[in-house]
Computed example of a mutant assay.
Amino acid sequence: MADDPEPGPDFEVPMGLFQDMEDLKAQFAALSAQVKALTESGADGAGEAFADDDASAGEEREEAAEEEDEGTFPPFILLLDSPLYDDELRALIEWVEGVLVPGYLAEPSSDARWCPEWFEHPVAVARLHACWLAWQELTDPATCGYTGPSVWHRDHLDPCMAQLRGSTGPFAGCTKGEHQVDHRMPGIVPSAWSRVED
């Protein structure tokens, strides 16, 4: 004997639900008519004022979004010209001298060099600025959660310090009490491409 399929649940839709739906339809139709009347009426200027308000609100939203984008993603320091470069360098110096040096740098040595005039070394400025940008993002729990500081140490601080403080880094020619900026500037490298044929 074949099993008969069970019939679906038997329930009644309350009459109030149908009335509520009809009320919603009527309210929607009335609002639609009001919107249409306001947008089409040009005689009293209400529609134009409405459009002007919408346009100015749209422009304000775009300007706010642009300002937010500029504030959210600061440019890399080497791409800036004065006075923006000077302002960014000043802020970087405050972070390096206020956070990085006292918190992370031990006494300089032959294995871990540091130049007190690090801001005179473009390579150091570039690397420290990149590290600082990452620090700003990865120490904010709202943007990176609770693992951000660990990621910053592992992926940004440790490689940056290894490059800066290593024996071949930008401070390689700087010793205690002696600062040398141009020690890493390469001379003209002879090349087969630039050799003058005799």
Rank of each mutant, 00 (worst) to 15 (best):
S32F: 04
S32Q: 07
A33W: 05
Q34W: 00
V35S: 05
K36E: 11
A37T: 15
L38T: 14
T39H: 11
E40L: 09
E40Y: 06
E40D: 09
G42N: 14
A43P: 01
D44K: 07
D44V: 13
D44A: 05
D44R: 09
G47K: 07
G47S: 09
A49Q: 13
A49D: 04
F50R: 04
F50P: 00
A51E: 12
A51I: 15
A51Y: 10
D52G: 14
D52H: 10
D54F: 06
D54S: 10
A55Y: 07
S56N: 03
S56L: 12
S56T: 15
G58D: 08
G58H: 02
G58M: 03
G58T: 07
G58R: 10
E60H: 05
R61I: 12
E62G: 01
E63L: 09
A64K: 14
A65C: 01
E66L: 15
E66R: 10
E67W: 01
E68V: 00
E70L: 11
G71Q: 09
T72C: 06
F73P: 01
P74A: 13
P74Q: 10
L78G: 09
L78E: 10
L79V: 05
L79I: 01
L79M: 06
L80C: 12
L80M: 12
D81N: 14
D81E: 15
D81C: 05
S82P: 15
L84S: 13
Y85H: 13
D87W: 02
L89G: 00
R90Q: 10
R90T: 11
A91C: 12
A91F: 02
E94H: 09
E94Y: 06
W95I: 02
G98R: 04
G98C: 04
G98N: 05
V99I: 06
L100R: 04
L100D: 01
V101A: 02
V101F: 01
P102A: 03
P102G: 05
G103Q: 04
G103L: 11
A106M: 05
A106F: 01
S110M: 09
S110R: 15
S110G: 14
D111N: 10
D111Q: 13
D111C: 06
A112I: 00
W114P: 03
C115P: 00
P116S: 13
P116A: 02
E117L: 11
E117P: 02
W118F: 14
